[in-house]
Computed example of a mutant assay.
Amino acid sequence: MGWLSTNGPLVVWLVVLSFVFLECAFVVGLFLPGDSLLFTAGLVLAQQGTHDVQAWSLSIVATIVAVVGNQLGYVLGRRAGSSLTGRLGGRMLSVERLAKARDFLDRRGFWAIVLARWIPWIRTLAPLIAGAAAMDSRRYMTATATGAVLWVPTLVLLGYYGAGVLEQFPWLLTTVMVVGIVFFVAGTAWGIWRYRQEMRKPAQLVSATAD
């Protein structure tokens, strides 16, 4: 945060938009701090004394970038198709598991994509898997846009408008960070657990549930 605050709003914009795009579009995004970066960007903009328009503009543009990034990830997954199973590892996404993922997306795909925005790692892999599983493109686009609108502005504006409160009560920053870490670790664990539960279901049970 100190490095961002000393380089001006332009650098904040470049870093945020680049990281959001990479995290939403490519596997390399697994290692990028999307949630904490968005929140920190809001804090930095507030500390720099920028106008509210800066925070809202960054929220809107970053939301669009997040949608475009996820759409690119979907297209890459769609084109890779079944070959994605080998690239992500047979144990993680075998041909059988890809078929189960397709059934799962048919049943709960909309909310799965929306909620994936809030779960690190899963929000990066979800577009690739949705594309490889041939999830309906319109349904996917609606879901990923909804998720982006709920994800990006919430974190950026929470950091921006909460900066004043955090300055008055410094201990709140530590509390927010701890709660954030717990939330995202728990969310990741829950997402992995749900994935494993779905993948353990027999194929015929998944199909029957879908019906």
Rank of each mutant, 00 (worst) to 15 (best):
R87E: 10
R139H: 13
A148Y: 08
L115Q: 12
M1N: 01
P170N: 10
V182A: 15
I64R: 06
V179W: 05
F184D: 04
L155Q: 07
L93Q: 08
A99R: 13
G73T: 03
F104C: 08
W190E: 12
L105T: 03
W56R: 07
V95Q: 13
R139M: 11
I129Y: 08
A126E: 09
A41G: 00
L45K: 03
F19H: 04
T174N: 14
A186C: 14
I64C: 11
R200I: 06
S18N: 11
T85M: 09
M177R: 15
R117Y: 14
G191M: 14
F39T: 00
G147C: 00
V114Q: 11
R97T: 07
G86N: 04
T85S: 14
P127V: 05
L93F: 11
V28W: 09
G162C: 03
V75W: 14
D52S: 08
A130W: 06
L93W: 09
L205K: 12
I60Q: 04
R108M: 07
M141K: 13
G180A: 12
A134R: 15
S36R: 03
E96T: 14
Q48H: 01
I192G: 10
G29E: 01
R123A: 08
L37R: 02
F184T: 12
D136T: 09
P120R: 11
M135H: 10
Q48A: 00
Y161A: 08
V176H: 05
P33Q: 02
E96Q: 15
T85D: 07
Q168F: 07
A116S: 14
A203D: 11
S137C: 09
L32E: 01
A148M: 04
L30C: 04
G49T: 02
A134N: 14
Q71E: 14
D211E: 14
Y74S: 07
I181G: 09
L155P: 01
M199W: 10
D52E: 06
I192C: 11
W111E: 06
A99H: 13
S59A: 13
A41F: 01
M141A: 15
R194C: 11
W171A: 14
V68T: 11
L72V: 08
V16I: 02
G109C: 08
F21Q: 04
R79M: 12
P120C: 11
L128P: 03
T124H: 01
S59T: 03
